[in-house]
């Protein structure tokens, strides 16, 4: 599991790769929160393009980051979900909590 953080124009993107479960989610949470709490970006994009596996721990991860970003009025986007991740994301109804985009350059949300 690895996280790569990019910062551009007050927006933060976390490029996630590997497998997201309860074990690895802790690590991701730590890295993202540390940077986001310092920078307080307007928007955080979680990019799932490199994620091969995700269980409901990934849902908890997104929900927790939404809560964090709300503390300073920021928003969360999730991008590049493969069909397997999409299945669990729609089961959880995450579209009610954050914006789901096809890729990080997509400005139009599909909801």
């Amino acid at each position: 599991m690895s996280v790569r953080l990019l910062l551009k124009d007050g927006e933060m993107t976390a490029i996630l790769s590997g497998e997201i479960d309860h074990h690895s989610a802790r690590e991701i949470r730590g890295e993202v929160d540390e940077a986001a709490s310092k920078v307080k970006p307007k928007r955080l994009t979680l990019d799932f393009s490199g994620v091969q596996f995700m269980d409901s721990s990934g849902i908890g991860l997104v929900m927790g980051r939404c809560k964090l970003m709300q503390m300073w009025g920021g928003s969360v986007r999730i991008a590049n979900l493969n069909p397997k991740i999409e299945k669990i994301v729609s089961l959880a109804g995450l579209n009610q909590l954050c914006t789901i985009v096809k890729d990080v350059n997509d400005h139009e949300a599909y909801e």
Binding site: S57, I59, G60, L61, M63, G64, I88
Partner: peptide, 9 residues
């Protein structure tokens, strides 16, 4: 940060 979805999944 458990979503409470384990059994549902």
């Amino acid at each position: 940060e458990r979503a409470g979805l384990g059994f549902a999944v």
